[in-house]
């Protein structure tokens, strides 16, 4: 199976900011999650693969060729950017239609392909409405429609779940899975492991512009499970709350701040259950809680130590 993307000693810097640092990476066909915290270099990597940026050093090849200003590569790829911007005063259909014209299609072909693409993302019923009236989920679908309209072999989706409500996310997971099942290679970037886990088992982890891991999601998940979860619980009276957790065998460390308790645990489910029970009993006031591991930052810190 030949690689769809290959990066060799790839670096990209903007002034003094190193966005991609000496990256060696091979991505095979299929659905691949590009995972990393904000600022990891995911979007820059995608833009290098699309030819929007040129490498500062090294090279990137997409479908066997360098992508920058390469019409042969651009004909075979589709891109759904992270930005939520559209042309003014445009309907969803018109948006896809005009971008088809930029593809070089004639007026009739562009209209037919726009209709097909809108149908693929289930937007036919609303495609003649102004984009300003669309929900976030519908705008995402129209962005994907424009990327699919010319039957690409490789699709880049940059943070497609951003800003979507739970139902919109479910629809997006389902759509991406369908695209993968239909034989498309899809690169999906995200900073949330859970999202990628719902879509694919193949993942690339970027951190500070470098590759730190590549493989199956479950391997990453095991790493996370071995790594203690940190939960911050805000309370006006943190001491009695800390006492409740201190004797629990699943709890590794309990720290007390002025208005909060920080709990590090290897049994997050048990810890959340205990918090639920405490709130139901109503004995101890709890204002809010936050799991700092949600952002993957802790795992990346752990992997890069």
């Amino acid at each position: 199976m030949s690689a769809i993307i290959e990066a060799h000693s790839l670096s990209k810097w903007f002034g003094e900011v190193m966005a991609i640092n000496n990256l060696d990476l091979v991505i095979e066909p299929g659905v691949t999650g590009l995972l990393g915290p904000n600022g990891a270099g995911k979007s820059t990597f995608i833009k290098l693969a699309l030819g929007l940026h040129g490498p500062s050093r090294g090279e990137v090849r997409v479908l066997g060729q360098p992508p920058r200003n390469n019409m042969g590569v651009l004909r075979r790829i589709g891109y759904c950017p992270e930005i939520d911007n559209f042309y003014d005063n445009t309907t969803g259909f018109e948006f896809v239609y005009w971008l088809n014209r930029y593809w070089g299609m004639g007026a009739r072909a562009a209209a037919v392909k726009a209709e097909e693409a809108c149908e693929m993302v289930r937007m036919t019923g609303r495609m003649h409405d102004p984009i300003e009236e669309y929900s976030k989920g519908m705008r995402q679908r129209i962005k994907i429609a424009q990327a699919l309209a010319a039957h690409p072999e490789l699709l880049f989706l940059d943070e497609p779940m951003n800003g979507l409500d739970p139902q919109g996310r479910d629809e997006m997971y389902s759509l991406i899975q369908q695209l993968g099942d239909a034989g498309l290679s899809v690169i999906v970037s995200s900073h949330i492991l859970y999202e990628i886990e719902r879509i694919t088992d193949s993942v690339v982890l970027l951190y500070n512009g470098a590759l730190i891991a590549q493989g199956r999601v479950r391997d990453i998940r095991e790493l996370i499970d071995r790594h203690p979860h940190t939960i911050r619980i805000e309370s006006p009276d943190p001491r009695p709350l800390a006492r409740e957790f201190a004797g629990d065998p699943g709890i590794m460390i309990v720290e007390i701040e002025r208005d909060a308790v920080i709990v590090r645990t290897q049994d997050p489910n048990g810890c959340y259950q205990k918090l639920n029970d405490l709130m139901l009993e109503g004995r101890l006031p709890i204002v809010s809680m936050e799991c700092s591991d949600d952002s993957l930052q802790a795992v990346f810190d752990y992997l890069t130590k």
Partner: peptide, 10 residues
């Protein structure tokens, strides 16, 4: 909106 245009084979 420029990334949409520049990722076309145009």
């Amino acid at each position: 909106t420029i990334p949409y245009v520049l990722t076309r084979p145009l």
